[in-house]
């Protein structure tokens, strides 16, 4: 990707989803900061793909978000396994630091409408998987 399209992305949570996103986006030439409360999680970052920064800390702590230069971020992605951490960090990013794009991963489909109410874009793998499976079932009726 051309450098003029370079985005500054903060990824919260370096689990399967977070590290995958961080590796890929960093490899594409974006500036990435990954935050995780457990330093061992950073082992999932691939040295040949990831060239961003890592911060060990709690992403709901304002000091940690400031350390990640959240005021300069173009995108914040909440990818921890705790959806409330994702939702809180996303709201701080959006409402307090005017981060233009904010995404969160949530697991409980019950919270999708809540995320819409507070104006946060959310991705719910649970309902996505369910929809895909239901569609697949309908496409191929038993023959």
């Amino acid at each position: 990707m051309a450098s003029k399209n370079n985005m500054y992305v903060i990824v919260i949570g370096c689990g399967r989803l977070g590290s995958f996103l961080a590796n890929m986006l960093s490899n594409e030439g974006h500036s990435i900061v990954v935050i995780d409360i457990k330093p061992i999680a950073f082992n999932a970052l691939a040295p040949d793909q990831f060239s961003g920064f890592k911060i060990e800390g709690d992403a709901t702590e304002l000091g940690i978000l400031k350390q990640a230069k959240i005021d300069k971020a173009d995108v914040l992605i909440g990818a921890t396994h705790d959806e409330n951490v994702n939702i809180m960090a996303a709201q701080i990013a959006k409402n307090r630091f005017d981060v233009p794009r904010v995404f969160v991963r949530i697991l409980d489909p019950n919270k999708e409408s809540f995320c819409k109410t507070i104006g946060i874009e959310c991705v719910c793998p649970t309902s996505m998987a369910a929809e895909k499976m239901i569609t697949a079932l309908r496409e191929k009726p038993e023959s």
Partner: peptide, 30 residues
């Protein structure tokens, strides 16, 4: 957990119309 307290208060207010919500915060900045 600050993040849980925030979500509980916001859900109470936005989804259930509770007028008064109070949250304990651990990080004073919050």
């Amino acid at each position: 957990n600050d993040e849980d307290n925030l979500v509980i208060c916001q859900l109470a207010k936005l989804n259930f119309g509770v007028k008064r919500t109070l949250a304990l915060v651990n990080d004073p900045d919050n």
